[in-house]
Design a protein around this nucleic acid. Structure first.
Lengths: 207, 207
DNA sequence: CAGTCCATGTCACTTAATGACACGATCACG
DNA sequence: CGTGATCGTGTCATTAAGTGACATGGACTG
């Protein structure tokens, strides 16, 4: 197992432990034991106990963003997503990671430290959202408009994710992928006045 | 000095120390000493070293939100702000707190822990933004649209704040209040398709 | 085979953070 | 005017998070 594999495995174990026995009741030693490594190794990989869950959350966020990177200019967000989900269906493993992530997000409602980690991951996601939006609006990534749109859209996705997580984890609600797509698309559309969700008209080469 | 005064004083000391000698180089003991209290008291007030700065950041955020709570339905955001700033000018003390806050925000670029605290405070601010928007749109606070707008608008304010902080603190740029208002207003306007920044038309009583 | 990374383990150590208890100020109430 | 309750704080012991320093062993290179 490579170094990033160990890190990811530890992150999964940490999330599971936080969920089953609670944040305060699981120590760095517990996480290390679950991962079959020494405690020292845990602190080599993570700067703090709460940040143990970040690779897990980031992996879910990464898949989300990776999907958006396949979004061609000629499709609307909704059209793209329903197609992409059939062409790149989630594997059972990624679904399980998403469940772990949603549980951690819910734990964040009670544990400030875990919430902080979730917000940090959203901050990362924001950074990777910017280039995607920049391409659609044909602007530079460091354009103020782009950073703003990325932040607003990410915030919208965060809110929807939190709501769905709470519903799924705490109230055992079910969501069709269609519903999720609808919620996310509406949220992103509402989150900025820039037309980032619509098909991009063919550009004049000289612009 | 009341309990909240002590807390706030400690928060200011922490921010100053983090800025002058760095995050890693200042200990809980240092903060306690600066505030003239025992170390134990510091950990009674704060759940972690990084969260020491939260009351300070929150106070700046609070003044921002308190201003928006004075925003009458009949004014646009820009008109309101220029008037409000003359009617409620910042005191030297609050200006100094804002400077401390901007420094902490900049430190957050290098120190994940401080960035996390900043994001947590933004999360708080988001909660207080929601009622303000709800009133303007004449919806319930827990309406999904409201939470979305609040999140997007707060994200926009965060981005502008970070940019201005970086410019002011690191590059010694100067900003007129007019410029700040312009940046913030444009950002908030761009952050949602809901017309939260415009004067609210007179409502029909029966709606 | 020798040399060099590089990841990890071990162990001592620092410091962030909590629990338990005592002390003194403040305040309500008879 | 006591007197008891509450509350904020200090002191001290202790746990747990997090780091520094060094050893080991495996993989890769020449």
């Amino acid at each position: 197992m490579g170094t990033s594999g160990t890190r990811m495995a530890l992150s999964r174990h940490a999330a599971t432990l936080f969920w089953t026995r609670g944040w305060a009741a699981t120590s760095g030693d517990d996480i290390a034991a679950a991962g079959g490594v020494s405690t020292r190794t845990v602190w080599r990989y993570f700067r703090s106990k709460e940040s143990c869950v970040e690779p897990l959350l980031a992996s879910s966020a990464y898949r989300f963003m990776a999907s958006l990177q396949r979004w061609s200019l000629s499709s609307s967000l909704e059209d793209f997503w329903i197609r992409d989900l059939t062409e790149h269906p989630p594997t059972p493993e990624t679904v399980f990671d998403d469940i772990r992530s949603m549980r951690v997000i819910c734990l964040g409602h009670d544990e400030p430290a875990l919430r902080a980690s979730w917000l940090m991951v959203c901050g990362q996601a924001e950074q990777t959202f910017a280039p995607i939006i920049a391409r659609r609006l044909d602007r530079r990534v460091d354009d103020a408009t782009i950073r703003l749109s990325a932040a607003a859209a990410t915030a919208a996705v965060r809110i929807v994710t939190e709501q769905i997580s709470l519903a799924v984890v705490s109230e055992a609600s079910r969501y069709d992928t269609d519903e999720v797509i609808a919620h996310l698309s509406r949220a992103i559309r509402a989150s900025t006045t820039e037309p980032i969700c619509d098909p991009v008209p063919r550009r004049t080469p000289g612009s």
